[in-house]
Design a protein around this nucleic acid. Sequence first.
DNA 1: ATGAAAGCGCTAACAT
DNA 2: ATGTTAGCGCTTTCAT
Lengths: 351, 351
Amino acid sequence: MKSVTVYDIAKEANVSVATVSRVLNNTAPVKKETRDRINELINKYQFQPNALARSLTKKETGMIGIILPDITNPFFPEVLSGFDQEARKQGYTYFLCDTVSANGDSADQYIRESQYLNALTEKQVDGIVMLGGRIDLAKPGRELAEEVVEIGKRLPLLLINGRLPGSILNRVAVDERLGAELATRHLIELGHRDIAIVGGYRHMSNTLQRTSAFTKTMEQHGIPVRKEWILHEGFSVASGTDFINRLLSLPQRPTAIFCLNDLVAIGALKAAAKAGLKVPEDISIVGYDDIPFASNSIPELTTVSLRANELGRTAAEILHKMITKDKVAKTTLLKPELVVRESTATPAGKR
Amino acid sequence: MKSVTVYDIAKEANVSVATVSRVLNNTAPVKKETRDRINELINKYQFQPNALARSLTKKETGMIGIILPDITNPFFPEVLSGFDQEARKQGYTYFLCDTVSANGDSADQYIRESQYLNALTEKQVDGIVMLGGRIDLAKPGRELAEEVVEIGKRLPLLLINGRLPGSILNRVAVDERLGAELATRHLIELGHRDIAIVGGYRHMSNTLQRTSAFTKTMEQHGIPVRKEWILHEGFSVASGTDFINRLLSLPQRPTAIFCLNDLVAIGALKAAAKAGLKVPEDISIVGYDDIPFASNSIPELTTVSLRANELGRTAAEILHKMITKDKVAKTTLLKPELVVRESTATPAGKR
DNA sequence: ATGAAAGCGCTAACAT
DNA sequence: ATGTTAGCGCTTTCAT
């Protein structure tokens, strides 16, 4: 099926392709009469200009790419949704690049990131947003970092909630330390002193930052932090139940648990229920992220909201500015918010 | 920043662009010596062929589009994830087109669908997958349907879990009637006779089909269906709690509730808890979709699995076949599965 | 095995 | 206000 081109339209309208292009893009005045004639033909043939050809000459595609770890993790659809809103508003259409690897191997994930980075630049996207993966590493390998930085030099590249040490890449992020501080202080103010912190990965900078802020906040209140109540290595529901089971088997049990994401908190909720513990009466649980389900669990989860939607929206906004060469701050820091719901309360001993 | 092209490579290698193209695409034998020389240059300059230019001549882009209603609804990320897996395997990169409208107005959604349909064809995608929106309508308007059908004539277009009456469009779907039958029979076999069915929208074909299958199954077992226990108009958590509250205020209460999606079921779970009812002891609840959270609620939700991941994967497979002009069945029907967890049990009266 | 040149469909000077 | 033409960067006959 041969598709119709500007030439076909031009010929039938007895004008040159330039004129057709002019009415298409409204880029120069065209006599109403001929414009009408052309528009009629466009309608008649349902003519759609070939965006590839257009982009080839204009050197802009209106396409952007977003690389993220796993759309199946409920945090990301929220971010993506905000991103989508704003990107759409600016007229972009975007490639979704999910880097999840079937076997959970993170080396695979980084390879995938590289592949997508490549595919996206070949496709001449106007900009790229990255989220998770290597940019969340506490110390990413030199090559891993360099590759991204290199691409960041050739086109607008924005990191969400991550960084590449020493690089000049733009980023937008939610203040990790503040988030952890909010959660910790909430627990302390409720009267807790025996607080565990679980979830995350020791090799990820977010985990490190949050844990460090947690420790600092505890110390500021003169509360000791127990090593055996710090359990990392996991961001899943399953690891959440595992963490709590380990905690419960300890001679000394905490009265509150700060989970480094909501998935872990949900796992904790489940495990607590199975163990016959009531939340928050017997134990308080606070999550992190405020995924949609956090407000639908029983009890509803007290958590730290990363305002994911806004984060995504902001990212798209900034990327757009970068593309249009507007000035943007190198780092945009969003403030997280504590959302107090039902899973936290004053510890039993203090009521 | 001027980017390097085949010409630059060709010149420096003392060959013609044709030769460079040959080694790039491995499309004709090239003397090892010159091939090496070219590859070296490619490496040296980190040369990346411009995919736009390539696509312009090859008339294939390796890009596809997926149009869906709302990535924030946890069912869709599951589908998308399966789709992603397979699409990636086939070397496609895809545009995500989310048609959610801020104000929840479905007219807006259809407009958005049209816009994306247009944008995607202009961008010369190799194929399109549609999900939700107008294709879920029991009777879509003529224009709405025609537009899609028209596009389906020009390029591979596949519908997931939907249809356009009388059209010749390919589709892959999960058997709606079977799903509803599975859920209903499960409840009946448990001993329930007082069963309500809630959720969905009367103008959507899935709601109609499921409700009809529910009714039929009930009748086959000689169980009357009560009109006041059929509550449509909502797929959200909030509508779920609303449905159940209405049900509980009735003089006659059902002993089991079949919710047309998991979100509604979760709302029902919440409302039941607030009303002091124990699930499943006091009332049984079954959902539909098997979203990830269904296995994380307390109690865990008995539900009908649409095998979303597989659905997405299958869609990508079929679309690929359509693109490569392989033969494909017009309709591919997947079988849903009942997943029995904790939210259903024998009714109190029969224990 | 390699080169020359046409063409993919459009936009953007530059003319008129 | 409109036409001519030269690209954009690549692939692909057709020659050699």
